[in-house]
Design a protein around this nucleic acid. Structure first.
Length: 870
RNA sequence: GCCCGCUUGGCGGAACUGGUAGACGCAACGGACUUAAAAUCCGUUUUCCGUAAGGAAGUGGGGGUUCGAGUCCCUCAGCGGGCACCA
């Protein structure tokens, strides 16, 4: 209710900044002037700014607003600095939500997606973002995905793509593969049926062939957050270790096991293999209990989080494994639910004394715990915690007395001499499975022929277009049910064959879109010259949730394309900024149901009530905005009520970009008030501004000089802050300058004449307008025009600070006694040690605290601090 | 479970490579203007003791290094992100 009143005041008052008119006016001017369009090959220094393109869900959310505001500030800042700036936008348009919408609302995915794109484009345009819209792409357009079908054919030919079996979550009722997020407590989210594991033949890309390069090149990505590089490093997970080939009692074949700790072989007390290990399957054929156990494991789902958090369980197969070094010693062989078939060879040996997981398993099944690596060289017992660290070998025959690393080398050497193993480098990283049993994705361009096997679609037949006349009336993949889409003649033998009905993982599309943006209308995936000019992306901006998968896949894809002769670069993203999430308080009513923020009213006294009926509301934690918790604020409503500049500036003001940001209505109000204050200030200056072309008065003193100093310090600081993405600090600095300029109006002009003040005030105003231009572009243009300028601010130039004005002659130095602040002292800049020391010792505050204690030492840090140690 | 982060006033945050903790903003409180309200303007605002001058404590808890620690090290706790078919 209160809100409605505000709105009226804002709209009707003549003294208020009319953002609606202004924002529309400038957006039109930029569009008409094609201010943000660039050529595929431009001239001069370039800067490529890219924000992660959105999935077209229908409406933009605050995460988008934050992401695209950050990118736009960088783009506008660089443009003002004279760079040719490529700043494109498009749509990551394939994906499951379109299929879900089709099932729930009976809308065809294509139609749904294209409508969403239309409305989201309008919303983005209302934000005043400086995109070159002529480069817009949508990945569901055959004109886009035809090139990735070609890439896949090239990958096949280059040996980068191959086919193998892997396991998926299968919903037996819906007859569909489930994403891990669609598996809730082991059951399908829609059907509620227990999920099964199924093996399917699928396409994979050999990302592991590039593992070393992807790992080593991380070091060159200096402008990436350390955190992200570390996460990728751990994800690739290079580990040096050994394969051990254990003999199996009563069998001719051997059990292959990977270990990073061959030194602990003498402490081994069991072996374990994955439930889907071929040997397990073989044994299960004659062991009903084992096959039941395996079935139980397979009901578990495929995600690592589920497997790792499940209680460790195993089944003793009764098979004995022969210890390679100890004559006559055997180890029991288990099938265990925590051993992954995808990693190493799908089997391990367990050394409970030195591995926590093995220890828990051993305790559960009463297996021996034999310590063989002693941290201090003395014999010891293991209780609840395994000794995973360094130490000296004991109870280990030929390894006794060796340090861990030497023992690893010695054990590996012995194994390899005996033909029982070898040193090996293993990666945690697995090959990228790109097949999806889904409709709304890019068709995989292969044909299955009974005679010829798998036949790639001839290049001349590309694109394989996704049909849109499909129905979601029955469970399963609509492509399978389509009357004739999959029927095709084999390109090799001409007999009837069928198309592959799987589509690509949507990470496929997002692994090269940044290259397409360089020449979005080219008749190849991308024009080599355009890519040469624009790539790599200088600054990529997006959510931290993409720290591993999307970013790693893109790095791999770029290398794979390079290998297949596409040209381009090796590393796609030079700089990376990972933004935090946008959060909001959560609300529940008396019944415990979630409420939207605009269903809740703050009463006087702080109590929260439901707007509709006044019933009490409880506020919950501040969490990431999500539809399920209803703690969302619609950006469109904010832009409608306060304008784009307010929304943008709020996004930049409070939190540094990489941290989470809490949305607050009062914060938005504060920004809105600030923008109005600026507008009023410049509409009616307190004293006559100097003319736009007035000569500098030359001499400045008093307030005028002080103001000039602040203006130039602000220019220098804001420039540095924008370079370092410290947007919140940049905003604070500009506000400080604004506060100072505002105070000039209301008095305090001592020591300065009106003429020089008028000149200085204009200098300050112009600095504020230009510094704000990347952040609140509409208002900045308006202010610039108010100050009498005809040209737009888009092309810059960026203001430059006068170096003579940013260093003070006098500095405030803190004086401490024994590390405690006792006084401050004004000293000329760069006062020498002795002078500073004696000045500090003369201070009454210092002598009072010192009393008659002798001074032992004085530490002087020039221009900063003097610490008297007594 | 594994990997990666984060934790500073009532709140969001600032503090460059170890050097005056709390910039800037929000909220709150007091005042001006107004018949009144809104808007705007001025002021106060880390906590505790004190009329004041001033003093003490203080950056999630505990310990350490240092003349000096929000910042570095160890440890514990809480919260969040990722975990390969969400994007």
């Amino acid at each position: 209710m209160a809100r409605a009143v505000h709105k009226m005041t804002r709209d009707n008052s003549k003294e208020r900044y009319n953002f609606r008119e202004t924002e529309t006016k400038w957006q039109r001017a930029w569009e008409e002037g094609a201010c943000f369009a660039v050529d595929d090959v431009a001239t001069g220094p370039k800067f490529y700014v890219l924000e992660m393109f959105p999935y077209p869900s229908g409406r933009i959310h605050m995460g988008h607003v934050r992401n695209y505001t950050l990118g736009d500030v960088v783009a506008r800042f660089k443009r003002a600095q004279g760079f040719s700036v490529l700043h494109p936008m498009g749509w990551d348009a394939f994906g499951m939500p379109a299929e879900n919408a089709a099932i729930e609302n009976k809308v065809p995915p294509g139609q749904w997606t294209r409508q969403n794109i239309e409305s989201m484009r309008e919303q983005l345009k209302a934000m005043g973002l400086s995109y070159d819209w002529s480069r817009e792409i949508a990945t569901c357009d055959p004109g886009y995905y035809r090139f990735e079908q070609k890439m896949f054919l090239d990958f096949l030919e280059g040996g980068i793509a191959y086919r193998k079996e892997s396991t998926v979550n299968w919903d037996p009722v819906d007859q569909t593969v489930l994403a891990n997020e669609q598996v809730v407590d082991g059951c399908g989210w829609r059907s509620g049926a227990p999920v099964e594991r199924r093996k399917l033949a699928q396409w994979f890309l050999r990302i592991t062939d590039f593992a070393d390069d992807l790992l080593e090149s991380l070091e060159s990505l200096k402008a990436w957050p350390d955190q992200v590089r570390l996460m990728q490093e751990k994800w690739i997970g290079r580990s040096e270790g050994a394969h051990v080939l254990f003999a199996i009692e009563g069998r001719d074949d051997r059990l292959k096991v990977f270990t990073t700790r061959p030194d602990t072989l003498f402490g081994a007390s069991f072996c374990a293999m994955a439930p889907d290990h071929p040997l397990a399957a073989e044994l299960a054929a004659n062991d009903k209990q084992l096959s039941e156990f395996i079935e139980k494991c397979q009901a578990m789902g495929t995600s690592e989080a589920v497997i790792e958090t499940a209680e460790k369980e195993g089944y003793d197969t009764g098979i004995k494994i022969v210890h390679p070094f100890v004559e006559g010693k055997t180890l029991p062989l288990y099938v265990a639910n925590f051993v992954l078939m995808e990693y190493g060879s799908g089997a391990i040996f367990g050394c409970p004394a030195h591995d926590q997981r093995d220890l828990e398993f051993a305790r559960k099944y009463n297996l021996p715990v034999i310590p063989v690596v002693s941290p201090d060289g003395k014999p010891f017992e293991v209780e609840d915690t395994a000794a995973a660290g360094d130490g000296v070998l004991m109870e280990s025959d030929f390894l006794n007395g060796l340090k861990k690393d030497d023992a690893i080398a010695a054990a590996t050497k012995r194994l390899s001499e005996a033909g029982q193993g070898e040193a090996i480098t293993l990666y945690r990283l697995r090959d990228w499975g790109v097949s999806r049993q889904r409709y709304w994705g890019c068709p995989i361009p292969v044909i299955h022929c009974e005679t010829c096997g798998i036949v790639p679609v001839p290049e001349s037949d590309l694109p394989v277009t996704l049909p849109e006349d499909v129905s979601f009336d029955q469970p399963g993949n609509p492509l399978e049910h389509h009357p004739n889409w999959k029927d095709v003649d084999c390109p090799t033998c001409g007999k009837p064959a069928r198309r592959e009905t799987d589509t690509f993982d949507t990470f496929f599309e997002s692994s090269w879109y940044f290259a397409r943006f360089c020449s979005p209308h080219a008749q190849t995936a991308f024009d080599a010259k355009a890519a040469q000019y624009w790539m790599p992306v200088d600054q990529y901006i997006g959510g931290i949730e993409h720290a591993v998968l999307h970013l790693l896949y893109s790095r791999f894809f770029t290398r794979a394309l390079l290998k297949c002769g596409y040209g381009g670069v090796k590393e796609p993203f030079t700089g990376l900024l990972t933004q935090g999430m946008v959060c909001h308080e959560t609300y529940r009513d008396e019944a415990g149901d979630w409420l939207f923020p605009d269903e809740v009213r703050h009463q006087d006294g702080g109590a929260l009530v439901k707007t509709s009926d006044g019933s009490p509301v409880t506020a919950g934690r501040v969490e990431k905005m999500s539809k399920s918790r209803k703690n969302v604020v619609d950006p469109a409503a904010i832009i409608e009520e306060y304008g784009a500049d307010t929304a943008r500036l709020f996004m930049l003001s409070d939190s540094p970009p990489e941290r989470d940001l809490e949305w607050s209505d009062t914060g938005v109000e504060g920004v809105w008030r600030y923008l109005n204050k600026l507008w009023r200030m410049m509409t009616e200056p307190p004293l006559p501004l100097a003319a736009g072309d007035a000569e500098s008065p030359g001499d400045f003193s008093g307030t005028a000089l002080e103001t000039r100093r602040l203006t130039h310090k602000t220019i220098a600081a804001v420039t540095a802050d924008l370079e370092g993405f410290r947007f919140n600090r940049a905003v604070a600095r500009i506000r400080e300058l604004t506060n100072h300029l505002f105070a000039l109006e209301t008095g305090g002009e001592a020591g300065s004449d009106a003429a020089s003040l008028g000149w200085v005030l204009r200098e300050g105003y112009e600095a504020v307008a230009r510094l704000l231009a990347p952040m609140t572009p509409h208002l900045a243009e308006e202010l610039w025009a108010l100050l009498g300028h005809g040209e737009s601010l888009v092309a810059g130039p960026w203001p430059e600070a006068d170096s003579g004005l940013i260093v003070d002659e006098e500095v405030t130095v803190a004086v401490q006694v024994n590390g405690k602040l006792r006084a401050t002292i004004q000293l000329p800049r760069d006062t020498d040690q002795e002078a500073a020391e004696s000045a500090a010792l003369e201070l009454p505050e210092v002598s009072r605290v010192l009393g008659d204690k002798p001074v032992r030492r004085v530490i002087v840090v020039a221009n900063r601090i003097i610490n008297v140690v007594a």
